[in-house]
Structure formats: structure tokens, C-alpha cells
């Protein structure tokens, strides 16, 4: 009888039959994994819809401005906003503004990461710690971090320390809760497998718990970044001082003080762009890889 790969060497005919049936079952039962479409069509499919949406939005904006329902100082022309934006970019001022804010947010986020990760492990794995601070951390997550600005300014004065304080209070609870949720959602069978394979405590954490909790942890990191960015904007907007340098929040604040609507809109757009940029360039690719490896990437 015809044999598939390799099993010709098997001297036992019954075993050969079994191998053939098994190979057939494997071919029939193995789930078909959908291949991605060809490169340029996929890119086009991902890029075109948002571009069209932006174009429609700009067209509507331009039409409303041309209809002159509102005075110029309330609704400026898209071109006027673009000129402010391009002007700052041209002189290099925009880069300075972006750098001031983004490096603060990234640094704040990294400090939050270092604090929140061990905290999350403690809360997830130690019953007493969870009972003691679990509800507090969840509560802090729903407290708008702007509420901390007055206290931070009174404690530290108008300086970077106050701003980092606000950013940390915004980001740490999110990252902590993300890790806790990630660990809570691990199917209980996986740690048991770790035990029967002979893993000690450290090996169980390194090879089973942490990789299994990674999707939840990443979701927490993403939310943590969003919270640090918003908290930073809130802090910069409220706590303005020459000592603090010109960040995006201060740029926005100046726009309001000068009643310069194009600058206000340009500032809001830049804040939005940083948020989208970090999501698309940093978090999306990592998340996609992690979920795809686990067969969970249906939506991404």
C-alpha cells in the first residue's frame, strides 16, 4: 500500500496503517490558519480608510469655515492652523515643545513601569497585599489624576518633581491592575503543569506565569501610557511656569491666554498625534506579535 513520508521504514504493518490514518487525521483536523493578504493590498486596506476619513473631516471643516457661521476667532480656517503648525515646525520650535513633553511622559512611564511591575506581582500573588491595597489601587485608577495637581504643586513647588508625581499617580495603578488581571486570567492548569514538570518558584514565574500573563500586562502598559500622557497634559496645562519649559500643555495654555485659536487647535492636534504615534509605532506591533503567537490576533 502507498505510504506517506518516512513511515516506509516501519517494519510493523499495523503500525504503518496507524501512521497513515494518523497522518490523514492530522491533515484533516489541523485548523486552517488564514494567511495574510499580499503586502501592498494589506497596507492600502489599512491606510486608505483613515486617510479618507481625515480628508472628509478637513473638507467639512473648510466648508463650515467658508460658510462663516462663527467668527474667525472661534473657528479658524484649516490653513491658518496649518500655518501655525508649519511655522513652529519650520523654526524647530515644535520639536523642542514635543521633546519637552514626550521625554517627560516616557520617563514618567518608565518609572511607573519599574514601580508597578513588582507591585502588581505582589498584589496578584499575596492574598494579604491584595486585600489591603487592591481596592485602593482600583480606586486610584478611576480618580482623575488632575485632582493631584494642586497637592503636587503644594508639596514640590512648580517644578518637574510635581509633574512626575502626577504622571506616576496616573500610570502606576493602570499598569499594576493590568498585570494583576493578566495573572488572574492564567488558566489554572498551566501553573499545575509547571509543578509536574518540576519547576521551582522562580522557574514557574519565569517560564510560566510571566509569559502567560503577558497579554494582560501589555494591555495594562498601553493603558498606563495613555494615563501618563493625559496626566502629563493636565499637569502641564495647570502648572505653568517658565521653570518648567515650554511643553505641549504650556503651548496650549499660551494659546488660550493669547486668544489664539489656531494655536490652541494646533496644540490639541499635536497632543493627539503623539498619542496616535506612540500607539501605532510602539504598542501595536508588540501587541500584534504577542497575540498572533497565541492565535488571538483575530481582531488586529
Amino acid at each position: 500500500m502507498p505510504q506517506p513520508d518516512g513511515s516506509v521504514t516501519d517494519p510493523n504493518p499495523a503500525s504503518r496503517d496507524l501512521a497513515a490514518v494518523e497522518a490523514g487525521l492530522d491533515a484533516l483536523d489541523a485548523p486552517v490558519v488564514r494567511r495574510r493578504r499580499a503586502g501592498w493590498r494589506r497596507v492600502l486596506g489599512a491606510v486608505l480608510p483613515p486617510l479618507v476619513a481625515v480628508a472628509v473631516f478637513l473638507g467639512a471643516w473648510q466648508a463650515l469655515w467658508a460658510a462663516a457661521f462663527w467668527p474667525e476667532y472661534k473657528l479658524p480656517a484649516p490653513l491658518a492652523v496649518w500655518e501655525v503648525f508649519w511655522g513652529r515646525l519650520h523654526t524647530g520650535e515644535a520639536l523642542g515643545i514635543l521633546w519637552t513633553s514626550v521625554h517627560r511622559a516616557v520617563l514618567g512611564f518608565l518609572i511607573a513601569l519599574v514601580i508597578a511591575t513588582p507591585l502588581g506581582l505582589l498584589v496578584a500573588k499575596m492574598r494579604v497585599v491584595r486585600a489591603a491595597v487592591g481596592p485602593l489601587i482600583t480606586g486610584l485608577q478611576s480618580l482623575p489624576s488632575v485632582a493631584w495637581v494642586p497637592a503636587a504643586v503644594l508639596w514640590f513647588g512648580l517644578n518637574d518633581a510635581a509633574i512626575y508625581m502626577v504622571v506616576l499617580l496616573g500610570a502606576v495603578p493602570s499598569i499594576t491592575n493590568g498585570l494583576v488581571a493578566g495573572i488572574d486570567q492564567i488558566p489554572p492548569i498551566l501553573p499545575r503543569v509547571g509543578v509536574v514538570l518540576g519547576a521551582n518558584r522562580w522557574q514557574a514565574a519565569r517560564y510560566v506565569l510571566l509569559p502567560a500573563a503577558l497579554p494582560g500586562y501589555l494591555a495594562g502598559l498601553k493603558q498606563g501610557w495613555a494615563f501618563s500622557w493625559r496626566s502629563l497634559m493636565a499637569a502641564e496645562l495647570i502648572a505653568t511656569s517658565p521653570q518648567l519649559g515650554l511643553g505641549l500643555g504650556a503651548f496650549l495654555h499660551n494659546g488660550q491666554a493669547l486668544s489664539d485659536m489656531p494655536q490652541v487647535i494646533a496644540a490639541v492636534l499635536m497632543i493627539l498625534l503623539v498619542g496616535i504615534g506612540v500607539e501605532l509605532l510602539a504598542f501595536r506591533p508588540v501587541e500584534r506579535r504577542v497575540l498572533r503567537a497565541r492565535g488571538l490576533a483575530g481582531v488586529l
Binding site: 488558566p187 492548569i189 498551566l190 509547571g194 514538570l197 518540576g198 519547576a199 522557574q203 502567560a212 492565535g295
Partner: peptide, 24 residues
């Protein structure tokens, strides 16, 4: 061996077996 395979979903078949050898 359990009723579910309980393989580590982030590892390939080979790496799942490899993990057991590593822990042994």
C-alpha cells in the same frame, strides 16, 4: 498528562517539549 493538553500557548510544539527538558 491531563485531560486538556495544557500546552503553553506562546510556545511552538518543539519549544513546549524543550521546556520540559530544560526544567528536568
Amino acid at each position: 498528562m491531563f485531560q486538556e493538553a495544557a500546552l503553553m500557548p506562546w510556545l511552538t510544539a518543539a519549544r513546549n517539549v524543550d521546556l520540559a527538558l530544560k526544567l528536568a
